Simulated assay, not measured.
Amino acid sequence: MLFPRMLNISWGDNSEYWVWNSRPDSSRLDISKLNPGVNYEVVFRVMLKYPSIGWDVPVNLRLVLPDGQELVHEEDFGTKPESEWIDIHVGYFTTPPLHPNRGKKKISFSLF
């Protein structure tokens, strides 16, 4: 699990657009400890607070895999409930199998 402070969030430092809530159960995950050859799911866990302004148009979710393949789809936040945690599915990826010459592999994901 990656938490918001580890992400690059547009206007993340502007309290007019983003509020940083502290969660006592938060921690950080070193991605080098992911098991090789395992399927993982990328999900944004979000809560829209009233008034949630600007979410009346669909947003794009993107997952870029280590081989450069991009998985993109739209999500309509205007139909999502407010004031409760919801999971927004981005996509799945599989970590590369263990190999002695395995270099660093990266994925990237975004909500825009």
Rank of each mutant, 00 (worst) to 15 (best):
L61M: 15
H89I: 09
N14F: 02
E16M: 08
Q69N: 02
L61Q: 15
T95C: 03
N8V: 05
K105S: 06
L98G: 07
F3G: 09
G91E: 03
K104V: 06
E84Y: 06
W18Q: 01
P36T: 02
T95R: 04
P51R: 15
T95W: 05
D67R: 03
P24K: 12
N8L: 09
R62K: 14
S108G: 01
E84Q: 14
P24V: 02
K105W: 02
S10M: 06
Q69R: 00
L65R: 09
H73G: 01
G103E: 08
R45G: 09
I31K: 12
F112V: 15
K49A: 08
I9H: 04
P100K: 04
D67H: 03
N39T: 13
D56C: 08
E84T: 03
G68I: 02
M47R: 11
S22G: 00
S26A: 11
V64T: 09
P81L: 14
E41D: 13
I107F: 00
G37Q: 06
M6G: 05
N60P: 06
V57E: 11
W11C: 12
D25Y: 09
F112Q: 12
H89G: 04
D56I: 07
K49Q: 05
P66V: 03
M6R: 14
G12F: 01
Y17K: 01
G68T: 00
G103L: 05
K104W: 00
D87V: 00
L34T: 05
D30M: 05
L29H: 09
I53H: 07
N60F: 10
P97N: 14
R28A: 13
T94M: 01
E75M: 13
L2M: 10
V38C: 06
E74C: 07
H99A: 09
E16Q: 13
R23A: 12
V57M: 12
T79W: 15
I86L: 07
E82G: 14
K33W: 08
I88T: 06
I86G: 06
W11H: 13
E75R: 11
E84C: 05
R5N: 14
P100G: 00
S52K: 09
G68S: 02
G68W: 03
E84N: 13
K104I: 05
Q69F: 03
E75A: 07
L2R: 07
D25M: 08
L29E: 10
L61E: 12
N101W: 02
P97L: 11
H89A: 06
L29V: 11
L63I: 03
E16P: 03
I107G: 01
H99V: 06
V72D: 13
V46Q: 00
